[in-house]
Nucleic acid binder design. Structure first.
Lengths: 230, 230
DNA sequence: TTAACTTTGTGTTGTTTTAACACAAATTAA
DNA sequence: TTAATTTGTGTTAAAACAACACAAAGTTAA
């Protein structure tokens, strides 16, 4: 018989984006050794619960949100003294959400839930800062070869929103004309006939949407989404 | 208290390459419900053992090999009825080795250890076929953006070996001249002054080596290894 | 009401990269 | 010595990329 004394948890790195700033969701622990400490949302999985479902449940429970995109990031198991009672191995998930769609709502386990700008993440409990760093890298690289930026935006967005998202997350300037040309050349972003007046001054712009169906069709061929600029 | 009844295992998908064929390592189970069944090498981790170390230990124990390249692939936890005594969650690792460097040696837990051509993998126990498929995809894509092919070859190799490796793993033709030009342009593959006579007929070729130090240097700049052909 | 400001929208051109392509040189086998 | 096999090498047309500026539509302030 195997005498493992190890428990399995899931944790999520949830990214949100708003007005040029990238945020990560953290929750404040209510109980335990690390009470009051900020950590990533997550928790132990149930015996008969698939991993993905566990993440979704925890996100609902601890922050009241449902994400747009969720994928496994990696498993962190070498922080052996995370908990004194037993070793904890945590499967980390990478998630994207549009913060406008939800009001954060801390629930039973969490005392509070809050968006931290990626540049101002406090010291988190466990090895959660390492997870955030890895997820941040993943976000940056994935943005260039998969159309996941749309999961951070409203369903209808201005072209400048998309452009600013890329600029701020990749931390570099992008030529507006080349960017627009390239994105439109894929045929997966379509122009609606809605025109929106900016709150501020400036010429009104058209709203665009991401055509996911079209994207999935293209994937069956050998289309490769790719945004990379000097 | 948490009443999880889950155990954690690691499994490895070890790729080997020889003469145009890609192989995956499997072992035949000696004990348990699936005795005689072929499975991926792996096993339960020890309480205080880091995950990577567990994989290395299992590979040593079950097949007598040490790999050239090892990275986490993903965690598979939804095969809930894998074991009747408890749920097993397995962290899968992706590994590369040059088969010539080792003689497979099944040990205590394994009855036998064997290389299967990727095209002739039998039905494996648990969800191991799914792991192999994911690893295979990872190998293919990684080959194009990271110089991992060298971990499957001898330290000194003919240019045609490298070329054939790419052709056979990516399953497509590659223009010899363009391929050579591109690889050499990176400056991470260097020509030795050794000339080798083929066993068969043909003009003798020079041996080449991969300059890992140079590659690591380049990585500090913004060099990007990239092999992609039509 | 006019001028200044802000944001959207659009084309061209030179440079670089990629894809397509063929033949000579060195060796072995017949 | 001829045929077969494998290594080694350059050019060119086409495509992709990078760099660049100005007019149009609206708002704000004078």
């Amino acid at each position: 018989m195997i005498d493992q004394n190890i428990k399995i948890a899931v944790d999520a790195i949830v990214f949100g984006y708003e007005k040029g700033t990238l945020y990560v969701l953290a929750v404040q622990q209510r109980f335990g050794k690390l009470a009051d400490r900020w950590v990533l949302p997550g928790g132990f999985i149930l015996n008969d619960e698939p991993l993905l479902m566990a993440v979704e449940r925890e996100l609902k429970e601890e922050a009241g949100i449902t994400v747009n995109y969720l994928e496994q990031l990696g498993t962190f198991g070498d922080d052996i003294n995370r908990d004194e009672r037993f070793r904890v191995i945590s499967v980390a998930y990478f998630a994207l959400v549009n913060p406008k769609n939800f009001v954060l709502k801390a629930d039973t386990d969490a005392k509070d839930a809050k968006w931290f700008p990626i540049t101002e993440i406090p010291q988190l409990g466990y090895d959660h800062n390492a997870m955030v760093n890895l997820a941040h890298q993943r976000l940056k690289s994935k943005l260039t070869y998969q159309p996941i930026g749309f999961d951070l935006l409203d369903q209808e967005f201005l072209f400048s929103d998309l452009e600013n998202l890329y600029c701020s997350i990749l931390e570099r300037d992008i030529d507006r004309r080349n960017f627009r040309k390239k994105i439109l050349s894929f045929g997966i972003v379509i122009e609606t006939d809605k025109v929106v007046k900016m709150g501020a001054s400036g010429r009104p712009g058209k709203l665009f949407t991401f055509d996911k169906t079209k994207y999935n069709q293209l994937l069956k061929g050998n289309f490769q989404f790719d945004i990379s600029f000097a």
